[in-house]
Design a binder for these strands. Structure first.
Lengths: 202, 202, 202, 202
DNA sequence: GATGAATGAGTCTTCATTCAT
DNA sequence: CATGAATGAAGACTCATTCAT
């Protein structure tokens, strides 16, 4: 097998295992076994375990960049409607993630999700949150405030995702101790975005 | 120190470190040092490292449940407007996460984000995605399709969060190999939710 | 509870556990739990774990000495037949061991027998040896060389015990590298002891 | 060094140390030092300390089985005298144990005998018992009930071994609470076996 | 290049013992 | 005397990485 093929093979085996078990729960021996090569061989192609992981990310990143620029070149900004522009963006992104669900799992793995021991407890919380939102949507439909046509599962995911991201971004990454009126303002803005598309006019 | 206090103290120190360095990069010795106690003491209170982590999650889960039921009992379903209902939900959730940004980090930590080595590469991708969305919003404003009043940063986060969640949910967790028309349909639905609140009528 | 009673209670609990699980697999916490006392209390009565164990042995030793001297004073050497003398010795010894089967287990535990993990593998060997001997006895009966009246189980134990002891004594404790003719001689002597009582005259 | 040699080497070093210090008092580091290898190397060959110990037993067991079947195939049941049959058995067993006195020690180690701390107290009791029996034999010789030719040391070992084994078997392993007449019966049977070969006819 | 035996620093975990209350 | 929280030395085991063949 030539060096490039071998390198690719190692990356694919590693990707599979990282996706399944996470970085820390994937041992070099696992990768080596999966690839059917000798323990030392892997170090001919990668400096260390980190480099394998980083390479996977790097490649994924480059693929994403390529996809974005392709999408952009296929859109005629002058003549496209906002609807279609948005749709085009969303579609190409979704196709992209759908095309490699192992990397998708590695990159997007929510929360801890890296050790099977904690999956249950982590999942329990996520499920709870998801259920509350789903339930709220159904109440809205019952009260005829929300159309019966919406995909509650999808919308619940949208709200969950948005909520988690906002919380993470404002309270963790940009940990400017949010004052209460900041949070109120945030909530107002979120509502203003979702209301028109979500609620039926009466 | 009495057992309850000690247990609490250990949990707090562990939370701080897990939040900062992640589960795998937090050693028992780190927790022990942080708490200023002896190595063995920690095992008087927890069977092992896993149990400490799980306890943190468990507690957070219970707190969330309490918050949800309190919010619910404070809403008069009959007389509340959909807007206010939605706002109330969003606000209480955001306050909740804001109240404990360490757990928030642990629970919501996006993607891998558990090893500092990978932060850069992981962040690079996230940032790229975030920037594309922010940029799109700005283009929309430039073309007068989107109001100049919107909080682009917030909206970019909302879209990023929703996108990631959808991808994760449909392509990883419920890995029903999505056919292309499924993805198209998903995109349509997402657009229908966001369009009314996002785009200016002309 | 007065000091002497407490000490006795600790010894009894320890004896029970040492008998069941062996010295190394018995923790101070186990003894303390069994006795329903505090962890520190045990050190008011014994310097350390070793001392507890040693005390049990010491007491057993003293009891044995007492038993022996009592048996001796009850025998009238001048007027007793050898048969009765031997019987008296055997009986009193057996009664002694039967009176405290926990100490009996601790003192006589054959081989390793101290860690449940090894019981199976150790027992397998002992069983094998025992079975070979039992089988030989039955063959002897079949060929009418040995009386049908003997208790094969008992005799198999006698031979097993004697064999183990001889091997242990001559090859381990007094590890004078036994020459082949020494072993032959040993075997001759053993046969001369057992033959008359074991084999039928023809 | 090739894997088979290395594995064998580790087993030999471990055997030596287990025999000398017992299972619990033998540390992985001791084995590793004895073998002159690195700490981790041992785990390439054995899952853990238990497995090393169990392997030694397993091998010994297989060797014993082989010896037994060889002995059996070398005896012509039809034409051998009971005496010779018994002698052959005893001899091959003794040779077997003599051939590996380290395993002999591990397998037959009487009683606790696993921690040097207790050797003294354990040995004291064993010695006492042994001495009583030796003394009885000498009294028997003095009274001309027992031949002056017997090997008192050997016979004392035989009786000690048989006694211990009987006690262990009937009072510990098969702990049917022996009634007094059971014990009397046992004693009778034992006497009937030993008397003819032990006592001189008058 | 490939191999896989060897390495050893690094971690978790146990448990007898101490000591302030 | 009794308590039980705290201790920390000691030991088992892991696993990424190296290197002689």
């Amino acid at each position: 097998m030539n060096p490039d093929e071998r390198k690719l093979q190692i990356l694919q085996c590693a990707k599979k295992l990282f996706s399944k078990n996470g970085y820390y729960e994937t041992q070099i021996s696992d990768i080596v076994d999966e690839a059917g090569i000798a323990r030392g061989t892997i170090y001919q192609y990668f400096k260390n375990k980190d480099e394998i992981f980083a390479t996977l990310f790097e490649n994924f990143y480059k693929k994403w960049e390529r996809m974005i620029s392709e999408t952009e070149s296929s859109i005629d900004l002058k003549n496209v409607t906002p609807h279609d522009y948005l749709k085009s963006r969303i579609k190409s992104s979704l196709y992209f993630f759908a095309s490699d669900n192992e990397m998708c799992n590695i990159v997007l793995r929510m929360g801890v999700g890296i050790n099977k021991n904690f999956d249950s407890v982590q999942k329990k919380l996520e499920k709870k949150i998801f259920n509350v939102i789903t339930n709220d949507l159904k109440i809205g439909q019952q009260f005829k405030n929300i159309s019966m046509d919406i995909d509650t599962q999808l919308f619940a995911n949208i709200f969950t995702g948005a909520l988690f991201r906002i919380a993470y971004y404002y309270f963790v990454v940009h940990k400017t101790q949010k004052e209460s009126h900041d949070i109120d303002l945030l909530a107002d803005k979120v509502v203003s975005l979702y209301s028109p598309g979500l609620f039926l006019k009466k």
